[in-house]
């Protein structure tokens, strides 16, 4: 008599166990690997995210783990090779995802990535450095046309996001630059403020204090539209060069996570990235929040990866580290 009942109960228990993956999620802390050192822009953004995330997904707190090295490849690889249970995620940035695989030497591809949600973008502003022989977009272009490879443009590292951005811009605008790599954005900015290079690519937040003090002059922004921080700075498009570029970061995980866990994470991250407190704190940090869902995030990454591949092949850097 009891048998059918217990069979039904057993079946229920099994069903419940299946659903438990998503229902109980997260049963333990969700870890987010930041592939850069503590204290940088991506790290601080992730920490703000972890803080606000708790409001939208009850449970144990989100934990940030810094795993820097290899331009972000090491931490990204760690996140993509983690057990696909939703408990290990990563900050997915443009450099490690869309650029590094083209140089070779990474043990992951774009196809290994489960895109969860885009957090924001780092807008690219081109500035004229101290003592530069130009101070607006028109003069910059005229000088570049008259002096091929005559403008020295500082960037934050060879083959990094803003190096590729400038190369890509040069191809569209049909001008060429001498790209001067530095060991990081702040080193490049120091050289720029000191007048040791002519121009550089920076984020609006990096450029703002120096633009305000008059040490450097904003030339143009690689966006569709002008931005609030620099309302008087034109876009490249306004100047007749159809070109946009920005770097970005979001939350990624390994392929093969349970669909319901992904859905739950996507929902909570959407709520987090559109949360007023999150947006305000990110703005204070000088970050540009731009939430997009997993599919749109993936499209952005694939587009940039394709553009970058063509440039990297052109530069002769394709698979150079293989």
């Amino acid at each position: 008599m009891l048998r059918p009942v217990s069979a039904i109960l057993g079946a229920c228990a099994l069903l419940a166990a299946g659903a438990a993956a998503a229902q109980d999620f997260p049963a333990r802390p969700v870890q987010v690997v930041v592939p850069y050192a503590a204290g940088g822009g991506t790290d601080l953004s992730a920490r703000i995210m972890a803080d606000v995330f708790q409001k939208h997904l009850k449970g144990p707190p989100m934990v940030i783990r810094n795993q820097p090295g290899g331009g972000g490849a090491i931490g990204t690889s760690a996140a993509l090779h983690a057990r696909p249970d939703g408990y290990t995620l990563g900050m997915g940035a443009q450099g490690p995802l869309a650029l590094l695989p083209h140089y070779g030497g990474t043990d992951y591809k774009l196809d290994d990535v489960q895109f969860i949600a885009l957090m924001g973008r780092n807008l690219q502003l081109v500035v004229a450095c101290a003592k530069a022989p130009f101070s607006d977009f028109k003069a910059f272009m005229a000088y570049a046309k008259a002096n091929p490879k005559g403008i020295q443009v500082g960037n934050s590292g060879a083959g990094g996001a803003n190096h590729i951005a400038m190369e890509a811009f040069g191809r569209v605008a049909e001008v060429s630059f001498e790209n001067v790599p530095f060991g990081g954005a702040s080193e490049a900015m120091t050289a720029c403020v000191g007048g040791h290079v002519h121009a550089m690519v920076a984020t609006p937040a990096e450029a703002l204090p120096h633009a305000k003090s008059g040490a450097i002059k904003p030339l143009f922004i690689m966006e569709e539209k002008r931005i609030d921080t620099f309302p008087d700075t034109p876009t490249a498009i306004e100047g007749g060069v159809k070109f946009t570029w920005s770097s970005w970061k979001g939350v990624i995980g390994p392929k093969g996570m349970p669909a319901d866990v992904v859905a739950k994470l996507q929902e909570a991250l959407k709520a987090t990235f559109t949360d007023e407190e999150f947006v305000r704190r990110m703005q204070d940090l000088g970050e540009f929040v731009d939430y997009r869902d997993g599919a749109a995030y993936e499209e952005l990454a694939r587009n940039d990866s394709q553009t970058a591949e063509a440039i990297i092949r052109d530069l002769g850097m394709y698979q150079m580290n293989k």
């Binding site: 090295g69 290899g70 331009g71 090491i74 140089y103 030497g105 043990d107 083959g159 150079m320 580290n321």
Partner: peptide, 13 residues
Amino acid sequence: GVSRYTFGLPGFA
């Protein structure tokens, strides 16, 4: 930006 003497180990990149 080329990797030097890393013996293909990403950890040394």
